[in-house]
Design a protein around this nucleic acid. Structure first.
Lengths: 203, 203
DNA sequence: TATACATTGTTGACAGTGGCTACTTATGCG
DNA sequence: CGCATAAGTAGCCACTGTCAACAATGTATA
């Protein structure tokens, strides 16, 4: 990372480098309790350099969390099938993508949901989080319009969907989805129940 | 807490006092990142005294997490209606109790699901966690036997139930269940979808 | 082109924390 | 009376976030 001994005095793009390094560290560790100094170390700059780009550590954390939500939304959008064969197909595909994002980036995912405890930045962060929520809303809306989903208040159905995938993601990250208790494919099984709860009975 | 200046040299029951104090602190703060020294301070003993009862901080955390799971299981057992009027009644009641436990003890709840990262103690901790899971399994088992719940692999249904309540609890703790997005009673709405997914279509 | 200014990085340090360990002191019990 | 237990005192040591002062570099302007 900080190999080149002849690096120029000015990094040139340290802000991005700090973020990138922090994301790397999040990928390696399970918790998001890294230190600013270590980020600086691995980015190959002095321990105070990041302060030229972030007022404090919380600002970096907030930025990382926002990036996380953005990436999650992108993952979901990318995974969303253009022409879903069925409601089950559509829900399952996108839910799998959601949980996969969490299990692939456990530390980042945890951070995303822990960082907005600093209330002030909270609004912006919530915006990003709720943008993810909108992806889910859109699916449900179209499903209802097509008659494939029960006519129920859509926010409630969305809450069920989000709650379920968020919960399954967290349980998976924390290693609590042990096959002896929860079966070999707990996510698919849980989604099955969800789909049966969302889908129109006629179907 | 440590008011009495004429307290005896030997506390007498410091182990319990440390746990009690730590639980108090968890009740007040949102995170579980308290320090052993502060626990000792508030318990009115020196900062090294707790080490006579716990080998290290992780041991205390693990103990607290186990207590948390035990209490959660007790809460659920206590809330479980003896003669449920309906499947919806039964599920809703117990799920509300679950989420209430989490929102009433956010720091403890978070700790419960973060502490077993130290793998070695993990097995014992998982035992307690899975005992909670068993409460859920029991409800589903009886529901299936009574024909009120669809015949599906019960672990999958349990995964759906646990995932949903865990997710809703976490979202609630993290303040992401904003009414504008998710409605005024997101939990009840989500449970509605769950019940419709679990319940026999005939009903 | 030369010079002043703003930007960005470095060095060093401060103040506080925090887990943990040795060693000492008090207490209760056999 | 003596020993095991439990508590206190002191301190190590590493680390962290943050700031202030200084240095190097880029940029705009006279």
């Amino acid at each position: 990372m900080q190999d080149a001994p002849n690096r120029p005095y000015h990094h040139g793009d340290l802000r991005r480098a700090v973020i990138e390094t922090a994301l790397d560290m999040l990928r390696e560790e399970k918790g998001w309790q890294f230190t600013l100094r270590e980020v600086a170390r691995r980015a190959g700059v002095s321990h105070a350099a990041p302060y030229k780009h972030f007022p404090d550590k919380a600002a970096l954390l907030a930025e990382l969390a926002m990036i996380g939500f953005d990436r999650l939304r992108e993952s979901l959008s990318a995974a969303k099938p253009k022409a879903p064969k069925s409601l089950r197909d559509e829900i399952t595909t996108i839910a799998r993508a959601y949980v996969a994002f969490g299990t692939d980036n456990p530390a980042l995912y945890r951070l995303m949901f822990s960082a907005e405890e600093g209330k002030s930045v909270g609004m912006h962060l919530n915006e990003r989080a709720l943008a993810v929520f909108d992806v889910l809303l859109e699916i449900l809306r179209r499903g209802q319009a097509a008659g494939r989903i029960r006519k129920r208040p859509i926010e409630g159905q969305a809450a069920a969907g989000w709650g379920l995938v968020h919960g399954m993601t967290m349980l998976a990250i924390d290693g609590l989805l042990v096959p002896e208790k929860v079966g070999s494919a707990p996510l698919d099984a849980a989604l099955s129940t969800l789909v049966e709860g969302l889908g129109s009975p006629a179907t």
